Computed example of a mutant assay.
Amino acid sequence: MSSTAPRRVGLIGWGAIGRVVGGALAAGEIPGAELVCVVDNRPLGDSVPAPQRTLEQALESCDLIVEAAGQGVVREWGTTILASGTDLLVASTGALTDERLAKELLNAGPGRVYFTGGAVGGLDLLQAARAMGPLDDVRLTTTKLPSTLEQPWMDEELLGRMRSATAPVEVMAGTARDVPVKFPKSTNVAASVALAVGDSNAVRVRVVADPAARHTSHVVEASGAHGSYRFEVRHLPDTANPATSQVVPYAVLRSLAALAGRTGQIL
């Protein structure tokens, strides 16, 4: 473990992601990082392994905030956190499809902003390929259970097709700029791919509802002058929150380990 002082971590959100991340931190599973407090707008009582604090209180005692509560938190508090000098690790990357917000976060400081890849792999390879030249065609197809994709903006016709489906139904097609806004809890992967590619408008996204989908599926296809790439990941949904894949909190923990200075891992 590094001889430097441990990262003092404040965790925003005590849901499907936050409980796993907070439990691992409290158990000392991330060398170089300690859980100082939990921020949540609900009274959590004794269910959390660290004191519950307001965000303002967390900024007084933490040098790293982990967002595990949704895109709204990133929009409302991201720049405030960074302006305080506190670093921010974002799990809800879908918020970054808002170009204005993304620029604000990247230009804010003195705190630094970091992003986790969440439920998709291959982003490092896409970044490397992009460094050689533009990717001409980037596509993402996300498939989930219909119930996890229902949204308030959907009309009765679409909801009816999803609820009565016996085969896959395309729910929406658009760019990585459009889709995460419509599915704020279900399509952070689209934003993560867009961040790797460097252009939200260049990533074409299909969202598919499949009543037989035991796993959540993400298929990324990209091609350019230097090669073609295809990645497919299939995750079991979280039992407490089926809109989130079980692997997501562990991706957050891996990012935390890197920020805390753990050595001997692939970056």
Results as ranks from 00 to 15, higher is better:
220 V>S: 02
67 E>C: 04
183 F>R: 00
123 L>H: 03
29 E>A: 15
182 K>A: 10
110 P>L: 12
216 T>V: 13
109 G>N: 11
23 G>D: 03
121 G>E: 15
107 N>H: 15
155 D>Q: 11
83 A>D: 14
45 G>P: 13
228 S>E: 15
16 A>L: 05
255 S>F: 01
157 E>K: 13
174 G>I: 15
147 S>H: 05
144 K>I: 04
141 T>L: 12
263 T>G: 03
184 P>R: 08
237 P>M: 11
129 A>R: 06
235 H>K: 11
79 T>N: 04
240 A>M: 08
231 F>M: 09
159 L>F: 05
249 P>G: 13
219 V>D: 14
218 H>L: 02
245 S>K: 04
49 P>R: 10
227 G>S: 05
71 Q>N: 08
119 A>G: 11
94 G>S: 08
14 W>P: 01
95 A>T: 09
53 R>L: 15
115 F>L: 14
173 A>Y: 08
145 L>C: 11
171 V>M: 00
221 E>F: 06
243 A>M: 11
249 P>M: 14
76 E>L: 12
133 G>R: 14
82 L>S: 01
51 P>M: 04
260 A>I: 07
93 T>R: 12
61 S>M: 10
140 L>D: 02
51 P>D: 13
138 V>W: 01
116 T>L: 06
239 T>Y: 06
156 E>T: 14
86 T>D: 06
109 G>F: 13
130 R>E: 11
22 G>H: 07
151 Q>N: 05
32 G>Q: 10
98 D>W: 09
258 A>W: 06
25 L>T: 02
157 E>W: 13
172 M>E: 10
18 G>H: 07
211 P>D: 02
117 G>N: 12
246 Q>I: 12
150 E>A: 08
118 G>L: 13
155 D>T: 12
48 V>G: 14
252 V>C: 07
188 N>M: 12
167 A>P: 00
265 Q>G: 14
138 V>Y: 02
238 D>A: 10
244 T>E: 13
15 G>Q: 09
234 R>S: 12
80 T>K: 09
210 D>Y: 04
188 N>I: 02
115 F>G: 03
90 V>I: 15
163 R>K: 10
182 K>I: 03
40 D>M: 06
213 A>V: 00
6 P>H: 10
190 A>S: 14
11 L>V: 04
257 A>C: 07
244 T>H: 12
213 A>N: 00
141 T>F: 11
230 R>F: 03
43 P>D: 15
81 I>D: 01
142 T>P: 00
29 E>W: 14
253 L>Q: 05
174 G>Q: 14
254 R>E: 12
117 G>C: 05
244 T>F: 09
23 G>F: 08
21 V>M: 05
197 V>Q: 01
2 S>N: 12
139 R>Q: 14
216 T>C: 08
229 Y>E: 00
10 G>S: 05
218 H>V: 12
110 P>K: 13
66 V>K: 01
92 S>T: 06
224 G>N: 08
